[in-house]
Design a protein around this nucleic acid. Sequence first.
DNA 1: GTCTATAGAGGGATAGAC
DNA 2: GTCTATCCCTCTATAGAC
Lengths: 195, 195
Amino acid sequence: MSISRREEVLHAAAELFAEQGFHAVGMRAIADAVGVRGSSLYHYFPSKVDLLHAIAVDSTRAFIESQLEDLNPSPDYASRVRKMMFDHVVYFHEHRMEEAVGLRELQELRKHKPEAYTELQTLRRTYQNELERLITEGRDKGEFSCEDPHITTLAILGMVNTINDWYRPHRDGPIEDIADIYSSLIVERMLGKTA
Amino acid sequence: MSISRREEVLHAAAELFAEQGFHAVGMRAIADAVGVRGSSLYHYFPSKVDLLHAIAVDSTRAFIESQLEDLNPSPDYASRVRKMMFDHVVYFHEHRMEEAVGLRELQELRKHKPEAYTELQTLRRTYQNELERLITEGRDKGEFSCEDPHITTLAILGMVNTINDWYRPHRDGPIEDIADIYSSLIVERMLGKTA
DNA sequence: GTCTATAGAGGGATAGAC
DNA sequence: GTCTATCCCTCTATAGAC
């Protein structure tokens, strides 16, 4: 099962954009990483910004959809939030290059592809709303003692989205362990899971 | 009390770098913002990277020093952590342009000014260690019920350092209110302040 | 201390052969 | 689908007049 050249280009570009930033990476550098000439990239993407577009929107959509499709059938809210956060941490680690690009190059997309920027913001907002809804309903059901679901949601997302800034597998152990610690911190402590 | 032209340049550059990123901003754009020609900037800074250096290192050092100098004499650890986090949130909002640059352009500094990068990392590490120390000692004294001071410290810093990504004064109210909510979330909940 | 003018390098992108 | 060749533009930085 070999991957297409187009996917090769996307992956190489994501890695370089994540490490150095969109403007620091030239089309020639991406081409070098794939083993072709700069002009060959234009066979797959009409411009450098379209490359960024594909990386940011595709990866964000894939993440949101995978997270929201099987909002698991667990009856209690605590289990549902716990699973959502655990999966979030693991997924963000496994796709850290693409997700870093999606988080950091927002303004570039806003400038050159406004409709792609809007789509990204809508996707993020959908995810944020879903988390806030789980927290609010869980609190109304008496499962949580959380005081401010909105701000707490933003705090949680800030926490989990910055793990990749410090996490190094060899030094910090398996990502699943980190995901466990964060999930507990969120559900038991920040949300004050009762009983 | 007028500010020097050098400071004008630093402030304009910080704002532009924060909004668009280091590589997206040309020396001409910075010069335009100040009202001079591009070449005039080289009277104050030998290169564009030196401008970034000044913004990132100076602002980070100012923040760390202001935070660590009056580690207030309050006897209990809960009050000390609360004040540290409250001040952190307010300071980061008031200096959001410079701090955004310091957080986001690390790799650029690492590439072109390794010694400046090292200094920045040392400063950050000092601050992180101080927070972790307060949490660990507070737990040992029985004030907190925190289980993993190291990971909890990283989670807290991720939370507070991403507030500027979503906070808008007109929509979200005074920054002091946000600082209060975050401080409580951290001290009462994440650290499990006892009694 | 600010200007004009420009050097020198590298950027994104296109044309057209194969 | 990939190449060579190249266009045109913008970038950082410098030289030297004022």
